[in-house]
Structure formats: C-alpha cells, structure tokens
Amino acid sequence: MADYGMLIDYDWCTGCHTCETACQMEHNLPPDQFGIKVTEVGPYQYGDRKWVLINMPIPTDQCNFCVERIAQGKLPTCMHHCQARCLEVGLIDELQSKLSAKKKQVLFHNQG
C-alpha cells in the first residue's frame, strides 16, 4: 500500500464542516463519529488590533485517506467536497516537499 498523507492549509479553512459531512456519508459513520473533524480556536483578540480565528480540519484514526476512491481514480471525499480547497491528499513524500511553500500548513501521516 502506498504511503499517503493529508496536507492542510488551515489559513484558508472557513470552518464549513463540509469535509466532515462528506466523510460521514461516504463511510456510513454515525453522527458522533468522524473520519475528519473541524476544530475551532477563537475568535479572540490579542494586542491592539490582532485577532485569532483558526479552523483546523483534523483527520481521526478512522481516516484512511479514501484509498478505495484513489484506486478508482477519484479524489478522497473530503478533498472533493472542500469548498476552500485547503485539503490535499497524496503521497507523503510529495506533500512533504510542499510544506515550506506556506506558513500555516500541517501534514498528517497515517502509518496505520
């Protein structure tokens, strides 16, 4: 099996939760379980004019990066439905090379 990961540009995530819903529907997960879950930090103010509001999609242990869809030539369902286009699933080595391009990115790797 190929070594996949998920690169998330959380500077662009709007917190719409579409990735969560699409994943739940694709994998028939119950309402209290998630393959990916959006968490929110803020909003709060710091300094004179600065604000923090971060939406961060986080893959859970139930995420398998939709390897079945990838094998069929399709995008993973969270990536396909992401309105902000802030999720990218691919080979871990390729995604790792993109990390230095932007400041607010994280790379998730599931070795399971």
Rank of each mutant, 00 (worst) to 15 (best):
G35Y: 04
E20T: 07
G5A: 03
R85I: 04
L53Q: 09
M79E: 15
D93E: 15
H81F: 07
T18V: 15
G90T: 04
H109L: 07
H80A: 15
T60M: 05
P59S: 05
G35I: 01
V106K: 10
H81C: 13
S97P: 05
M79T: 14
P59N: 02
K98W: 01
D9T: 02
D32R: 10
E68P: 08
E68L: 09
D61A: 12
G15H: 04
Q72S: 14
M79R: 09
C63A: 05
N110L: 08
I54P: 00
Q24R: 12
E26R: 13
T39W: 06
K50Y: 07
P57I: 03
M1P: 11
C86R: 00
C16P: 09
P76G: 02
C19A: 05
I70G: 01
P30E: 13
S97W: 05
Y44A: 06
T14D: 09
N55R: 10
N28V: 08
C82Y: 03
H109W: 14
L107K: 09
H80N: 14
P30S: 12
L87C: 00
R49M: 11
L75N: 12
P57C: 00
H27M: 12
S100R: 09
T14W: 02
S100K: 12
R85P: 00
D48A: 14
G35T: 02
Y44C: 02
L91F: 10
L29Y: 10
E94R: 07
H17D: 13
Y4H: 04
P31R: 08
G42T: 03
Q24N: 08
Q62C: 04
T21P: 06
P57F: 01
A2L: 12
T60G: 00
I54Q: 07
C13T: 06
N110H: 11
Y10M: 03
N64P: 03
C13D: 01
